[in-house]
């Protein structure tokens, strides 16, 4: 594993963050999302007479959205960008290995998530006067797990992209966003319609938010939930990495150029 190829991939892809237009896009959409969920939270707080429920809603949104959806999307997006620019074959014709490429895309996801986290918490304070410091230690505990979950989803989406090529573009956001809906970020999973509850119990992030909710509302320890989430995360990550290497080997044997032409 070498540092320089990883850095070069990261620098190539993060160059997009230097554009003013990109920043306006990120900031504006993120701000509208925060305003929307902040107001929904305020409305729920007034209905329940409990301010914590509203604050919990908006904080969990800021915690999950960048980590799960951004980390997950950044990895297959990098593959798609390379194949759209007919650069995938050229990239893997250099001495870069799949591990180095994967780590680079993970770092890109991390950078994207960090930018949105910082912006999110600053906006939260400016717009709703909610300080993240109140929940700082809980967020410090859950953020690595959320990032790990995001990377795991990203790896599976990368596998999908290697298999079906450019067609995966329309499914990537769809799949990544559905994890946010199913893992009970904004509500306990018992509120989900029956057919979705089983799926929810198999998602690592579900336990993070169930634990966080239990701790904030009833004072119960969140550690058993965190442990379950970590176990599931590690299991899926292990299987995902194995599937990624196997798929990549298969695609390489068939010819990477086939992905660029698909």
């Amino acid at each position: 594993m070498r540092f320089r190829p990883i850095l070069s991939v990261v620098l190539t892809h993060t160059a997009q963050y230097l554009s003013f237009k990109e920043w306006i896009g990120i900031l504006w959409y993120w701000m509208i999302g925060i305003v929307l969920y902040g107001l929904i939270g305020r409305s729920i707080s007034s209905l329940t007479g409990n301010e914590t429920t509203g604050i919990f809603l908006i904080i969990t949104l800021i915690a999950i959205k960048p980590s799960v959806s951004r980390c997950a999307i950044e990895m297959p997006r990098a593959i798609l960008e390379q194949s759209a620019g007919h650069a995938l074959v050229a990239t893997f014709a250099t001495p870069i290995t799949l591990s180095e490429w994967t780590i680079a895309t993970m770092i890109m996801g991390l950078i994207g998530a960090l930018i949105r986290w910082i912006l999110g918490f600053v906006l939260l304070f400016l717009l709703f006067n909610i300080s993240v410091m109140t929940y700082l230690w809980q967020l410090i505990i859950i953020s690595p797990l959320l990032l790990m979950a995001g990377w795991t989803i990203g790896i599976y989406l990368s596998v999908l992209t290697y298999i079906i090529g450019k067609k995966s573009d329309s499914f990537i956001r769809l799949i990544a966003e559905s994890f946010i809906v199913l893992c009970g970020v904004f509500y306990p999973i018992a509120m989900l319609p029956q057919p979705f509850r089983f799926i929810a119990t198999q998602i690592p992030t579900t336990y993070i938010f169930e634990g966080l909710r239990a701790q904030i509302t009833t004072g119960t320890s969140m550690w058993p939930y965190i442990l379950t989430s970590m176990e599931l995360n590690l299991l899926y990550l292990g299987i995902g990495i194995f599937a990624l290497f196997l798929t990549f080997k298969h695609v390489k044997n068939r010819g990477l150029a086939s992905l660029e032409n698909k």
Partner: peptide, 21 residues
């Protein structure tokens, strides 16, 4: 898909709010 996702989010959120009230 998008309609279903939004219906699940806000349906479940509504149910959770109803329970709390």
């Amino acid at each position: 898909y998008w309609t279903l996702l939004d219906a699940i989010i806000f349906g479940s959120l509504g149910k959770a709010t109803t329970m709390l009230t």
